[in-house]
Design a protein around this nucleic acid. Structure first.
Length: 839
DNA sequence: TGATCCCGCCAACGT
DNA sequence: ACGTTGGCGGGATCA
């Protein structure tokens, strides 16, 4: 084995790019590790950046650079720039592939980048493990690690051998609710407490242990059997294919997530998690090796969850000392029961969502009647059925494999990078650039789909423009999604820091730029953030942090992009950019979804039938057909197939056909950073149109934006997405924003800083508020807006709404002033007695 | 050092 | 018999 060790990997060939070698080395052989290359520093931050960058835009890079490249850290930055254009620089290849580069987290990001968070039914949502492994240049084994975790969240489901279906985050909310419920039933909370007690109190106290045992017997025993938690829609699937007992990863992942969902601070230390997980299976026996192994697995899972931005690493300082832990950063999960409440609060939810919820409830009931375990576990007989069904599906699906791969294009997601490395921001930029390329590709694809609307339509999407305005008209889509406008995702997104952050950032920065608004707005948010987020932490700390972050950002920015100062905006953009990108993606996705929906509607009532259907992948469709799981599934499968077919055609048509649809759809696509980038310019030319998106996209494709443009773009991206989603309005916003370079300015920076750590909490609040307000204020729009993440929508809306257009900000602030949101914010955090240090 | 966690052997499964 | 999954833990890396 010694041999095997890392060193062995071939290093070989091309030093740099290892990644994406396309040589066809299917065989897992890991690509040559370039390590040797002396890239300047082994591990300077820059080197990390390089890595990140490479990671970020692997595909693109790989393509362009297939050959080797040189390496220089310094070059990295340049490389980034180069990337924008094309990647000319091969040189940059990062230096060594150090371990980090190979990290599961990074790999996961790459993986996730290939797929939209909210895939439409139409898209080819299937995942071929071999392909992925090859493309990502990793051993298949690693892909399993990722997929297994994703599967535990029902973000993917196994279809067949080597094949998985990608569901993205459509099911996430539901899954999390379910997991939470199960976790509650398992009394994880108590178990956690018990364990903590012991630890704290010394293991000695028997009493504590007893209690613990009590709890255990209660929960764990029952649960011990708890297998894989399935969603209504997905029920059989998961298990069906892999008969292999879902022993660990999957289940472990679910349990791990449950721990977060049931624990109040939402912070779980690895140690506790490991103990609980072990405990369940066997009364705890502190078996060291076992414990160690468990920890290892948890790291694996944590890395994936981190990539999903559901958790982030923190350190909890306790009496004992600092312990590694993870903090839940994913969406808030509401209690199942409360669905109604949720709906109420989150009026924003899109209809389909609501349905999903309700259905979910039902499902949950079914799944987890009173007793969790059985429900979760599949019955053997069922399994058979499932299998047969699956087989059928496979057959069916096998036929249609023509999927267009978005994979490469999807980089957008890249941005999603977790908070982890500060460098990520840099990466994000890179990614952005890379994305631009990809975006181009995507655009291309989209264009194709869209009839290939003239590439340059950029400036004028005539038809579309109208549509956006019409968005209100969204009759079709809207019909489906009436009031709540927002999205399914909203729940998830909003809560999610990411979502929040987006919203916040966008608003603030823009707002700032806009003017007056910014000040007030800014001010509020910050304080809030401080208050909420870091109670324990002193204001000083906060400030310090912020400053640090700021510095970091700046530093990053400077070095890398060396963007023009003007665009200070960029600064935020980095972090923002990721988010924005994501959002944009989300938006796109949403748009896609919308398309699908529209298509569906047009196509069939049946589809229409499933409100959720649009959004939700087949599996999910089950909601609709609550009754029989399989039949549903089958149906779902069928539906999906149909959808795909429909969609593709429709998609192509869309642009042409329904203006509305077009608008929606297109924008979404355009959302890509490139678009954004372009947009400014294009916008200037044709400010109003949402259509601009198309144009922008085209334009972008045509030309690469300057670095400054990049900056704007980033912001815009965030904006755009939002705008995009919403047909008409968004565009405007962007335009306005873009028009005002100033806006970015300082205020934005400050905002940015805050954002990073503190902000999340605070940020969220505002969004929520906004959302609520928003919804209240402009119900109409909502309908138009389909599923965007609420935040985005809200943002957009705000902009839109505000009479002043961008000024909306002011309105925004006004809304925001409802500190109520803040109060909510408080929710977020009281991080806890323990000190949590992020890092 | 301890915290992370990559790597890939090899068994369980499937076909 | 061979390919796919993925449990598992050594030991390399990182911090």
């Amino acid at each position: 084995r010694s041999v095997l060790k890392t060193p062995l990997k071939q290093s070989a060939t091309s030093p740099s790019v290892l990644a994406e070698i396309r040589p066809g080395c299917h065989p897992l052989t890991t690509p040559p590790k370039p390590k040797e290359i002396p890239a300047a520093d082994p591990w300077t931050p820059t080197s990390n950046l390089k890595m990140l960058i490479s990671a970020a835009s692997p595909e693109i890079r790989s393509r362009e650079q297939r050959r080797g490249l040189s390496d220089n850290t310094s070059e990295v930055l340049q490389a980034k720039h180069c990337l924008q254009e094309q990647l000319s620089g091969d040189e940059y290849e990062k230096s060594q592939p150090s371990r980090k580069e190979k990290s599961l987290g990074l790999l996961c990001h790459k993986f996730l980048a290939r797929y939209p968070n909210y895939p439409s039914a139409a898209e080819n949502n299937y995942i071929c493990l071999d392909e992925v492994a090859e493309e990502l240049n990793v051993e298949r084994r690693r892909i399993y690690d990722i997929v297994n975790v994703l599967e535990s969240l029902h973000m993917v489901s196994r279809l067949a051998k080597n094949r998985y279906a990608w569901h993205g985050r459509h099911n996430l909310a539901k899954t999390l609710q379910t997991l939470k419920k199960v976790g509650e039933e398992n009394k994880y909370t108590q178990q956690i407490q018990m364990i903590k007690k012991r630890e704290y109190e010394h293991e000695f106290d028997t009493d504590g242990e007893r209690n613990e045992e009590m709890a255990r017997s209660f929960g764990s025993n029952e649960h011990s059997e708890m297998c894989f938690v399935e969603l209504p829609g997905m029920e059989f699937r998961a298990a069906s294919v892999n008969s292999r007992k879902d022993k660990s990863l999957r289940v472990m992942s679910q349990k791990f997530v449950m721990l977060f969902l049931v624990s109040t601070p939402q912070i779980v230390s690895l140690e506790v998690a490991a103990k609980i997980l072990i405990g369940e299976d066997q009364l705890e026996d502190l078996d060291k090796s076992k414990f160690k192994t468990k920890i290892r697995r948890l790291y694996d899972i944590a890395n994936v969850l981190s990539s999903l931005e559901l958790i982030k690493k923190v350190h909890v300082t306790e009496e004992r000392g600092r312990k590694p832990a993870f903090k839940w950063t994913g969406p808030e999960v509401l209690p199942n029961v409360r669905d109604a409440k949720l709906e109420a609060t989150a009026t924003t939810w899109v209809p389909h969502i609501s349905e999903s919820i309700t259905s979910k409830e039902q499902c949950s009931k079914n799944l987890f009647p009173s007793r969790v375990k059985q429900s979760f576990t599949r019955h053997p007989s069922l399994i058979k059925l499932v299998k047969s069904i699956e087989n059928d599906r496979r057959k069916i699906q096998s036929a249609p494999t023509s999927p267009v791969k978005i994979s490469a294009s999807s980089d957008q997601n890249l941005s999603a990078v977790p908070s982890k490395m500060p460098q990520l921001a840099a990466i994000s930029k890179h990614q952005l650039e890379g994305q631009s390329k990809k975006a181009k590709e995507i655009k291309m694809k989209l264009a194709l789909e869209c009839n290939q609307s003239s590439p340059e339509a950029v400036s004028k999407p005539e038809p579309r423009t109208a549509p956006p305005a019409q968005k209100s008209a969204p009759a079709q889509p809207l019909g489906v999604l009436p009031p709540s406008h927002s999205s399914v995702s909203p729940i998830m997104l909003p809560h999610t820091h990411s979502g929040v952050s987006y919203a916040i950032y966008l608003h603030p920065s823009q707002a700032h730029t806009v003017t007056t608004y910014s000040p007030s707005f800014m001010l509020q948010p910050l304080p809030c953030a401080n208050v909420t987020g870091i109670k324990s932490i002193n204001s000083k700390v906060l400030n310090k942090i912020t400053t640090e972050e700021r510095d970091n950002h700046i530093a990053k920015d400077d070095p890398r992009n060396s963007l023009t100062p003007n665009e200070r905006q960029t600064v935020q953009p980095e972090s923002m950019s990721h988010k924005c990108l994501k959002r944009s993606q989300a938006l796109q996705e949403n748009s896609l979804i919308k398309k699908c929906r529209s298509d569906d509607k047009s196509l069939d009532t049946s589809l229409t039938f499933f409100p959720s259907g649009y959004l939700i992948p087949l599996p999910q469709c089950t909601h609709h057909g609550n009754k029989a799981g399989f039949s549903n599934k089958e149906k779902a499968g069928i539906c999906s197939l149909q959808h795909t077919t429909y969609n593709s055609p429709i998609a192509g048509v869309i642009p042409v056909t329904a203006s509305e649809l077009k608008a929606v759809n297109i924008p979404a696509f355009h959302i890509t950073p490139l678009n954004i980038m372009l947009s400014p310019t294009s916008v200037a030319a044709a400010p109003v149109l949402s259509n601009s998106c198309l144009n922008s996209s085209n334009a972008s494709s045509a030309q690469t934006p300057s670095s400054s443009v990049m900056n704007f773009t980033l912001q815009h991206v965030g904006l755009i997405p939002a705008g995009v989603q919403v047909p008409a309005n968004p565009v405007l916003q962007h335009v306005t924003v873009s028009s005002k370079p100033e806006n970015v300015s300082h205020s934005s920076e400050s905002m940015n800083l805050k954002e990073e750590k503190v902000s999340k909490n605070t940020l969220q609040l505002p969004d929520h508020e906004l959302n609520g307000k928003y919804s209240a204020v402009t119900p109409l729009q909502q309908p138009s807006v389909p599923k965007e993440p609420q935040e985005l929508q809200t943002v957009k809306e705000n902009f839109f709404r505000t009479p002043g257009g961008p000024n909306t900000v002011s309105s925004f602030s006004a809304n925001s002033d409802g500190t109520d949101g803040i109060s909510q914010g408080t929710l977020y955090i009281p991080q806890r007695k323990l000190e949590v240090s992020e890092d």
